[in-house]
Amino acid sequence: MTQTTSHPLVKVPEVTLLFWIIKIAATTLGETGGDAVSMSMNLGYLIGTAIFAVIFLVAVTAQIRAKVFHPWLYWATIIATTTVGTTLADFADRSLGIGYAGGSSLLLALLLVSLFVWHRVMGSVSVGTINSPKAEAFYWVTIMFSQTLGTALGDWTADTAGLGYTGAAIVFGGLLVLVVAAYYWTRLSHTLLFWIAFILTRPLGAVVGDFLDKPLAKGGLALSRYSASAALFAFILASILVFRQRPARSSH
């Protein structure tokens, strides 16, 4: 499923409903997969982060070096960012003792700095301008921060705020509905709305993932992290196989 285009350096997918469906599934997989390695395998957050960080660096390097858009490679890199984001956020929140509020605040600051520097250097943070290795590097760093922030924010909302996994999912799902409404019925920047939606899908996936594998006593379904991860992975593979994805159109 390699696709060529008149703008071969645009190697991110067109933003469609399919994109968001796979994105939410990938973020949910990141939560169950990250927890499977750090908790179920008893490797801990630090070792889990190290493992996924290596996978992330290999995937990002391959993605940036690729000459055309490869759906498989792109989504593998997204999954790598969300798994490393899960273990990294858990390490910062729990092992470092800064808590969900501290972790979320720190990661939000890093995300905003990343977007600010990217805009200052490249002139735009729109998906359609990601057509150079430098722009891709900014894109993936920003995504990694957003995925990590989403994990911390999801845990903070579900646990500290006391909303539980279902309540937190309703909150983040409702916020995404508002973003969709703003997209169609307001003149707000579509680039701004894209990044807001991209960030919000991560905590949604985080709380859905926790809902699937946490104990019944904590409001979860107590499913196996391995089986939940396998089912999500199979869904993503099927979506990529069945539905055609095209690269985003270049803005240049």
Rank of each mutant, 00 (worst) to 15 (best):
Met1Glu: 09
Thr2Val: 13
Thr2Tyr: 04
Gln3Asp: 07
Pro8Met: 06
Leu9Lys: 13
Leu18Val: 09
Ile24Asp: 00
Ile24Glu: 02
Ala26Leu: 02
Ile47Thr: 11
Phe52Ala: 07
Ala53Gly: 14
Phe56Asn: 05
Val58Arg: 04
Ala62Phe: 11
Ala66Glu: 13
Lys67Tyr: 07
Phe69Val: 12
His70Glu: 15
Pro71Asp: 04
Tyr74Arg: 03
Tyr74Gly: 05
Ala80Thr: 02
Ala80Asp: 01
Ala80Asn: 03
Thr82Tyr: 01
Thr83Met: 15
Gly85His: 12
Thr86Phe: 02
Thr86Asn: 05
Thr86Ala: 02
Thr87Tyr: 04
Thr87Ile: 01
Asp90Leu: 05
Ser95Arg: 10
Leu106Ile: 12
Leu107Gln: 03
Leu108Ser: 10
Ala109Ser: 12
Ala109Trp: 05
Ser114Ile: 04
Leu115Cys: 03
Phe116Asn: 14
Arg120Trp: 10
Met122Cys: 13
Gly123Met: 11
Gly123Asn: 12
Val125Glu: 04
Val125Ala: 08
Ser126Glu: 15
Thr129Asn: 13
Asn131Ser: 14
Ser132Gln: 07
Glu136Cys: 09
Thr148Val: 01
Thr151His: 01
Gly162His: 07
Leu163Arg: 05
Ala169Trp: 03
Leu175Asp: 08
Leu175Val: 12
Leu176Gln: 10
Val177Ile: 13
Leu178Asn: 07
Val179Gln: 09
Val180Asp: 10
Val180Arg: 09
Ala182Leu: 14
Tyr184Met: 08
Arg187Pro: 00
Leu188Glu: 06
Phe194Asn: 03
Ala197His: 01
Ala197Phe: 01
Phe198Val: 01
Pro203Glu: 04
Leu204Val: 06
Gly205Cys: 05
Val208Ile: 15
Phe211Thr: 03
Lys214Leu: 10
Gly219Asp: 06
Gly220Val: 09
Gly220Ser: 09
Leu223Cys: 06
Tyr226Trp: 13
Ser227Ile: 11
Ala228Asn: 09
Ser229Glu: 03
Ser229Ala: 15
Ala230Phe: 15
Phe233Ile: 12
Ala234His: 08
Ile236Cys: 03
Ala238Tyr: 14
Ser239Pro: 01
Arg246Ala: 08
His252Cys: 02
